[in-house]
Design a binder for these strands. Structure first.
Length: 199
DNA sequence: CGCCAGATCCACT
DNA sequence: GTGGATCTGGCGG
């Protein structure tokens, strides 16, 4: 079952939590590259100083102000692409950053995309999984809920019970004013080997 | 192992 | 001109 726009329209913390266990699927060259989401972070509105939307509406963050269920893909650190899913109502700028996947389908292709790296190093980080699934600028603003012709979408997966879900502060927010640097808006599957960092 | 700096582009100031 | 929702290899312990 493909995840619908209603799913992504929920509040961002719920979406981030519920995305654990869901499958991210990339269609490329007639084959499926996919993985189970094991780590995600919420970025919630213009008040959240960790969120790109906190600087106001710009060309870069425009997609976050649009309808839910679209891809917000941006470039950072001079070499990395990041994949987010837009959440909540139009005009409320929020998204979930996908931080790690447990690889499931198309692993040889992912390995090639990752210059021969394997296992843990395939998708254990936001820039790694973007590289493994060939997610770049062209997919920014792509509709992940399209009925046909989609290159990227999400599918249902086994629910992860609460006792297997852990939270922590978001990764990489250096010198962001509190409480934003410390709010526990990162969700990950406890003891899963493909999570980017143990805690 | 852990730590650290370099890589390298682009949006925003 | 600056610095970032990161990753990697190299170096030291």
């Amino acid at each position: 079952m493909r995840l619908s726009r209603d799913f992504f329209a929920q509040d961002t913390l719920s979406v981030a939590r519920l995305l654990l266990g869901k499958r991210l699927v990339r269609r490329w060259n007639g084959q499926r590259l996919s993985g189970c989401i094991v780590e995600a972070e919420a970025y919630i509105g213009q008040d959240d100083l960790g969120c790109h939307a906190s600087v106001g509406r710009t060309a870069r963050n425009e997609v976050m102000f649009g309808p839910p269920g679209r891809a917000y893909v941006y470039f950072t650190y001079g070499m990395h692409w990041m994949f987010n899913i837009v959440t909540e109502a139009q005009e409320f700028a929020a998204a979930v950053l996908i931080r790690a996947l447990e690889p499931l389908e198309g692993i040889p292709a992912m390995k090639r995309n990752r210059q021969g790296r394997t296992g843990f190093d395939l998708c254990s980080g936001p820039a790694k999984l973007a590289q493994a699934l060939l997610i770049t600028r062209e997919l920014n603003s792509a509709d992940l809920c399209a009925k046909r012709g989609a290159e990227l979408w999400l599918e249902d997966g086994p629910p992860i019970p609460d006792d297997k879900v852990a939270t922590s502060p978001r990764i990489g927010l250096n010198n962001t004013p509190e409480p934003w640097e410390s709010v526990p808006w990162r969700f990950y599957v406890r003891d899963n080997l493909f999570v980017s960092k143990a805690r």
